[in-house]
Simulated assay, not measured.
Amino acid sequence: MLTLYQFARIVEIRTKLVSVSSYLIGTLYAFAYAESFSLYRAILMFIATIAIDMGTTAFNSFFDYYRGIDSRDTNREEDKVLVHQSVAPGYALFTAIGLFALSIIPSVLLLIDVVISYGIAKAFLLLVAGILSMLVGYFYNGGKKPISRGPLGELFAGGFLGGVLIIICIFIQKGYIAYQDTLLALPSTVFIASILTVNNTCDIEGDKKAGRRTLSILIGRQKSEILIYLEAFLAFSLAYACTIKNILPPASPYTISLGLFYAVPQYVKMHKAGFSHKTKGISMMRILRIFTVFSAAIIIPLAFAVLKKLSE
């Protein structure tokens, strides 16, 4: 019988912070600046987002174990319960399928509401985006040639967990997407990609043995470390660009600067410790903390913009 702890580890519940942050950025932005806002659509979108994200991670857990990528020889992470607690892999597969099936209910209700509000054409675009998100979620580690085994993992992870998710959250509230909306989606896209770069750089040895050809393997450890810092620089730069373009509220430059002030010493510590399987746990903890602060630097000013709108 699968315990709650084991379920949480199969879906890697702590990493849901990534999708939740993108959801909040898109939803709060739409609430603050769209002409109208539907709490009903926002709730449906949240349920579908979490279900697909957890289902995707469960598929990852299953296929990583099934293909021998996660094994006692190559993995020391205690959170990998299929490896270190001998949890039957079928539980992970059943969990993934169940969560994807669960996501269909709020997705269908959301599509119906979008048809009523904006028409069939807009609903069709949403349907395509939803189907693509689920396909990427499965094929990220599933299929004969998983996305994660190649050099495009960062692009798809950042693109869908960041940019696409933020844009969908805005689209369901406005019924259209402006260029400002796409620019808002870029900082999170780049930063989420950097999280995967940290993960893959730490896993170079194990991924090589498993036959993967990740970007970190192709460019080497030294260039991968440089890429991590470049991605951080680009993410913060894009966030500042959103303030210059008045896409984010006036207080955003101050919160982003505070986020940068926190991030720099953390990157220094990561650099000194190095990126290897031995330091993966602490490296991932640090990059997720930086991401949390980075996301909060964007979310907090948007939340105050929402409160200001409500008080008017």
Rank of each mutant, 00 (worst) to 15 (best):
A235R: 05
Y262D: 10
S103E: 01
A88P: 00
T201N: 11
L24K: 06
I167S: 12
S107M: 08
K278A: 11
P106F: 10
V20T: 10
S257E: 09
Y66L: 04
L258V: 14
I50H: 03
E205N: 15
S295M: 07
A251N: 08
A48M: 00
K280N: 07
L165W: 05
E231P: 01
L288A: 07
F46W: 10
I97Q: 06
Y23G: 13
S295N: 08
P301D: 13
K278V: 09
A178I: 05
I104W: 00
Q6N: 09
A129E: 06
G259D: 14
Y138F: 15
I192C: 00
I287M: 12
I299C: 07
D70V: 04
Y176P: 00
L161Y: 14
I52H: 00
F7E: 07
V87K: 02
P151M: 08
A273Y: 03
I192Y: 03
E35S: 11
H277M: 09
Y118I: 03
V164R: 02
Y23H: 07
L310V: 15
T197A: 11
V264F: 13
A32N: 05
I10H: 02
R213P: 05
I256V: 15
I104F: 04
S188E: 05
F294P: 08
I192G: 04
A121M: 08
Y5A: 09
H84G: 02
I170C: 06
E231A: 12
L260R: 03
L152G: 03
S283D: 08
S133R: 05
F261H: 05
M1C: 02
A178M: 01
A157D: 04
D203N: 06
L165E: 09
G55V: 00
L28D: 09
L44G: 05
Y240N: 04
R286L: 07
S22R: 10
S21T: 13
F37Y: 09
S252A: 15
I43R: 06
P253A: 14
A157L: 08
I290R: 03
Y229Q: 14
V190E: 03
V81F: 05
H84E: 01
L126C: 02
E312P: 02
F31P: 00
L260F: 15
F236Q: 08
Y267G: 15
D203E: 12
G274L: 09
S117R: 13
D73Q: 11
F94Q: 04
G153A: 04
N60P: 02
A210N: 07
T74G: 03
G137T: 09
C169L: 08
V128C: 08
P146N: 09
I97H: 01
I287Y: 03
P106D: 09
A273S: 10
S216C: 14
L258M: 15
I177H: 06
S257Q: 12
Y240L: 14
I43E: 07
L28W: 11
N141W: 10
Y33N: 11
E225T: 14
E225W: 02
I43H: 04
L44F: 02
A303Y: 13
L132S: 12
K223S: 11
G68P: 06
L288G: 10
G175R: 01
P89M: 05
R289T: 13
V136Q: 02
L4N: 04
A303N: 07
I172R: 00
G211C: 11
L28V: 08
G142T: 13
V306H: 10
L234A: 14
P265Q: 11
Y91D: 02
L99I: 06
I204R: 11
S71D: 12
P253Y: 15
I10Q: 03
S257A: 15
N141L: 10
I116D: 14
G55I: 01
